[in-house]
Design a protein around this nucleic acid. Sequence first.
RNA 1: CGGGGCGUAGCGCAGCUUGGUAGCGCGCCUGCUUUGGGAGCAGGAUGUCGGAGGUUCAAAUCCUCUCGCCCCGACCA
Length: 573
Amino acid sequence: MRYSRYFIPTLKEIPAEAEVISHQLMLRAGMIRKLAAGVYSILPLGVRVVRKVEAIIRKEMDKSGAMEVILPSIQPAELWKEAGRWNFYGKELLRISDRNDREFCYAPTAEEAVTDLVRGEVRSYKDLPINLYQIQTKFRDEIRPRFGVMRAREFSMKDAYSFDTDQDGIDHTYIQMKQTYKSIFKQCGLKFKVVEADTGQIGGSSSHEFMVLAESGEDTIAYCDECNFASNIEKVSLDNCEFAYDGNHLPMQEIDTPQLKTIGEVSEFLGVSPQKFFKTLVYKTDDENNKAVVAVCRGDHSINPVKLANAIGVNEVTLANEELIESVTGAPVGFVGPIGLKKVSVYGDYSIKPILNGITGANKKDKHMKNVNSNRDMTHVVWKDIRNPVDGDSCPAIGVGKLSLAKGIEVGHIFKLGAKYSKSMGATFLDKNGKEKPMLMGCYGIGVARTIASAIEQSHDEKGIVWPVSIAPFKVIVILLQPKEELVVTTAEMIYADLIKAGHDPILDDRDQRPGVKFNEADLIGFPVQVIVGKKSVANKKAEIKVRKTGKIQDVPLETITDTIISTLDGLG
RNA sequence: CGGGGCGUAGCGCAGCUUGGUAGCGCGCCUGCUUUGGGAGCAGGAUGUCGGAGGUUCAAAUCCUCUCGCCCCGACCA
């Protein structure tokens, strides 16, 4: 490919809309452009990276025995109603109607479509197991798209759906997919962790997320420094604790805390550390009455809403507004405490049990309570594990290590669905004994663009992207420095042609541009290997090979240049 | 949806408070010079000032409505 005829609109300045580094660099390197909120065009350079990631995915999926299909991206409402998700999915599901006012949606995922396909064609255990995947555009009308392609509304996802006859079968498929995913992300050059995850809205019994570690990640994961335990924070079970029976339980006492609403303020005012506080929050649940609940954790901890929802047995909880807080506790925000709350259920995190003579809101304006003891004063509390883990919590796996927290980008997610969809949609088969059974399903997703963005998040420097070789748009750029010097031109053309002959796919920067422009753009786009052909080195029958990642440049005689380029590439993996 | 902010040339921004000629940098076009890390000089093109109403002799600027976008929260590949 000749740069002069390739479409790469680079930007020198950072577009104002881009917050995270991958978004900035993808815009600047001319890979993507925005069409609407969360909707992006992918330009030629971006497409090349997409194709490389897709090729890795296809190779590994095919190797696992999965088969590629293409399911419709526009799907009829009836199918979604049958599975019970038409109403459940809410506003995230983009609904459209055709000219006859028939309802359709732009599919955010394809469990319904694939289950419909399989139930129509598969009748016997002899036809199972089967694993079907596609790489298809999805649409989720996200509440807040952000971070460029990292959380777009329209996005390409590889989604796979497996159908097995029994538990052993699905367990096996699940493990195989986990291995396949590890292999895919490894080949994409990513540093990632496989973590246990909540099954959330999709449902099912078991679930793992593939998290690329990156500061800009929207998820927090906890991992152990001693064993290989790693988990989404909402899935980390934390130890129960003992009440503080020892020690002198002082009489509970109301104290004045005028205008002091936050734990920080009260803590400073009283000279007592936040660890001695009972932090009390009011949540609204999504059950039919929108019933309110109260959750209590330690002052220096935070409540995890997913854990809380699971503990209560509802789908989700949201923080209550001031009105609801006042109606439940009789006090304004900032003075809420668990003592004396009769009308609502109060859930207490285990970690507050040992607090001796602690402090909490008095449910009266400008008042707090001191000398509060959970075993004496909170007999109405239901004890649960509802807080977020913090650095240094003990690992729940074997119990020796300590947990650390890290930010991650979820690039893949696998679920054991079981019979959830096959039951509701009648995807059954006849087993060896002629008995009808629901197929056991699993589903497995990979965000393609998100994988690319996370590679950039993980691998860049102040000059630009540093592509992992496996997914670089071009592995090699031949930079022709003086397009008017004949010897330079013929040399660069020769290297370029030799690389093609050797089965490579280089790009030749033959533009009439100043060297600085070429160097800077090559670094911005991040070609792993740059071959610099300039008149100074050509005069000595040499050219330079620069490795983007290290910045190291070596002078190489022209007679061995192609071999050296290839071995340099091999050395980079 | 709640809270905050922004829409002025392709991109980044100034101008708006206090109404009166639409500006700067980058990019783009032409010419000359330059040519190993985003060149210099000279010349040039480009704007329904997001849109619609209103106030006014006069609106980018003031008022009302509206659309779009970004950031913070709940969701997810």
